[in-house]
C-alpha cells in the first residue's frame, strides 16, 4: 500500500484533535476553580505533545519532534508549582 493512504487517514483525524483542543481550552477558560484550569491545560499539553509528534511526520520535518518532550516536561512543572502553591506556606520550604 502507498504511504500516502495512511497520511490521508491521519489527515482526517486532525480535525478531531482540533475539536478536542478547543474543548479543553473552553474548560481551561471556564474554570471554575484553579485546579480545573490547570488540569485542562495539563491534559491539553500532553495531547498537544502527541499531536506535535504526528504533525512533524505530516510536515515531513522530523526535527520538529523535539518540542514535544520539552512541552510535556514543563507542563508537569506547572502542575507541581500550582500544587506547591496551594499546599505550602512558602514556595521554598
Amino acid at each position: 500500500m502507498d504511504p500516502s493512504l495512511f497520511v490521508n487517514v491521519i489527515l482526517y483525524a486532525i480535525p478531531i484533535y482540533l475539536t478536542a483542543f478547543t474543548l479543553y481550552a473552553v474548560r481551561a477558560v471556564k474554570g471554575p476553580t484553579i485546579p480545573d484550569s490547570v488540569l485542562a491545560i495539563d491534559s491539553m499539553s500532553y495531547d498537544l505533545a502527541a499531536f506535535m509528534a504526528i504533525l512533524s511526520i505530516l510536515f515531513k520535518s522530523p526535527i520538529l519532534i523535539a518540542v514535544a518532550i520539552v512541552l510535556a516536561l514543563w507542563i508537569f512543572a506547572l502542575d507541581i508549582y500550582v500544587a506547591k502553591y496551594l499546599e505550602s506556606r512558602e514556595m521554598g520550604e
Partner: peptide, 10 residues
C-alpha cells in the same frame, strides 16, 4: 504524578 499532586493539593 502531576494529577496526584494537583489532587492532593486541591
Amino acid at each position: 504524578v502531576g494529577s496526584h499532586a494537583l489532587a492532593r493539593a486541591s
